[in-house]
Amino acid sequence: MINFIFRNIWQRIILLIFISIISHAIVHLAPGEPALVDPSNPRMKPEDIQRIRTAFHLDEPLHIQYVYWVRDLMSGELKSFKDNQPVMGKIWERFLNSLPLFLIGTMITWFLAFPVGIRAALNRDSMFDRVSTFFSYALISIPGFFLSYLAIIFMVKTFDVPVIGMQTFGLEEAPLLFRSMDRIWHLTIPALMSAIAGTAILSRYVRSQMLEVIHQDYIRTARAKGLPEDQVIYRHGLRNALLPFITMFGLTIPGLIGGSVIFETIFAWPGMGRLGYEAILARDFPVILTLNFISAVLVLMGTLVSDILYGVADPRIKF
């Protein structure tokens, strides 16, 4: 077991090095340099551009730039091209904003998807199954930002509730209770919107997984023993159906960065996805690269954790 974990961590570190090299190459080889963001500015003279390039090491060969980036990242001194702030500090600040959105979104996804999926599987071809199937396809198919706009119109018109940003402007001095209520109002709709597609997909998986398990021999045995139906379904069925979702849980973590760009832009939520979007617009290479790197670390950690959990949860798997 310990051996397995060490071997896995080792493999993942090698993967991570390759990922960082590839993403560094993609970002630097693509046309468009930070020095060229504003080409029409008449005050930018060629010598200024040269000075900027030297300051950011952009005139060095690619592999030297990579070494500089890794050195600065490891020593924590990586600075953003845009405003010369430490990259890690900027990301950490945005991470704290993204985290509640992500946590609530994930909670909504998992708490909604399982009951719906299980019910649909147990009453296969019933009205509920058909309706939930159709709705899950419809929700997968709708562009996220279109749905969000509909939700914004609906919320603002019906409940007169603000939904843009993290808090209502001018409430900074209000008592804590008011501020937290305000924050919850602002959090609900973005979290719900970012959870919807995930819920639809996950409930389909739960349904097919449950359907597969429910026809197994051991379920028939449990029924034949005369166990109550609830116990058959939730103790014998569900626990086996849950196994593959351990893997899925690990894969949801990177959604923290990639999946949130659209929703954070619509709802003006200053999170990591938006930071990445702004960095892309400004050609802020250190921020783009570091975000990419962090998300790769998250994916690899997620898969590692799910591999280990799989071994813990399923006694049939041996390392």
């Binding site: 990922i19 970002v27 468009g32 990639g258 999946g259 760009v261 998300s295 790769a296 994916v299």
Partner: peptide, 24 residues
């Protein structure tokens, strides 16, 4: 297959956005 693993580690939409924004 390791290359596939590497590609799977990129946040897809973020990667698409980066490349599309940098390319003409």
């Amino acid at each position: 297959m390791r290359f596939v693993d590497i590609m799977l580690c990129f946040p897809t939409f973020f990667l698409i956005l980066t490349v599309v924004a940098l390319l003409p």
